[in-house]
Amino acid sequence: MDAKRYELNVQLAQMLKGGVIMDVTNVEQAKIAEEAGAVAVMALERVPADIRRDGGVARMSDPAMIAEIKKAVSIPVMAKVRIGHFVEAQIIEALKIDYIDESEVLTPADEECHIDKTKFAIPFVCGARNLGEALRRIAEGAAMIRTKGEAGTGNVVEAVRHMRTMNREIRQLVAMPVEEVTGFAKANGIPYELALKVRELGRLPVVNFAAGGIATPADAALMMQLGCDGVFVGSGIFKSATPAVRARAIVKATAYFNDPAKILEASMGLGEAMPGLEISAIPKEQLLAGRGW
């Protein structure tokens, strides 16, 4: 990918700011998401809550299903590939959708290497739990970052932890004399040049969305107030009692994240949210956020 292509890919993410990206598993859901005001849809066969329930190996979705969704909506379409599975990424690129998510929600294909995203023209978004992880993905060519959170739980606690961790590390970098940056970068596995860039900008150098466990309008506004640029909602919409109503409410609360009266209005009468999972009740080997590094 040449520098200009990368810039265009970062700029598409800029257009998504302040918006909600929704997981959808078929054309009908994609249309509900678009009508509700989603800025993009993530096309996948099973939402994370079902992947978690079913176990086994989770792979890239059937491209025919992704193609159908692409045909059904006018908003950008994203799809997930396994961490390190660059051939799944080649297939999705050939499908000409808008964004690839190299995602820990699917079973990793490579425990050592993430995809060399600089080899692709299509943009990538990648998950991160902290600043070092985010910047390593950016160094590999990611054009957008999202917190990992803990997908499929309906529990926002991990997304909050990851966002606060990134923010804390950014603040530390900003306050640090420049001679300390080398050591900080080394300790956190951060490419030095990117550490300097973050120190200058006071934020990640690409758009950063929150993801993983967002289930209510309040969750979305919470993540926005913590400083992310937009949100992904996975299982939270189509595992709830009233998906269309909830989708619209989360879009409103994300746009007006700083306005408690509007968030209140958006939160009323939504019916049952998706059932939530306590993180400590999940066996360690089933936690998704630890996949990738």
Partner: peptide, 14 residues
């Protein structure tokens, strides 16, 4: 500004 017109249109009207 730029963004997603379906999202903006929905928020403008609600």
């Amino acid at each position: 500004p730029g963004g997603e017109s379906t999202c903006l249109a929905r928020l403008l009207s609600v």
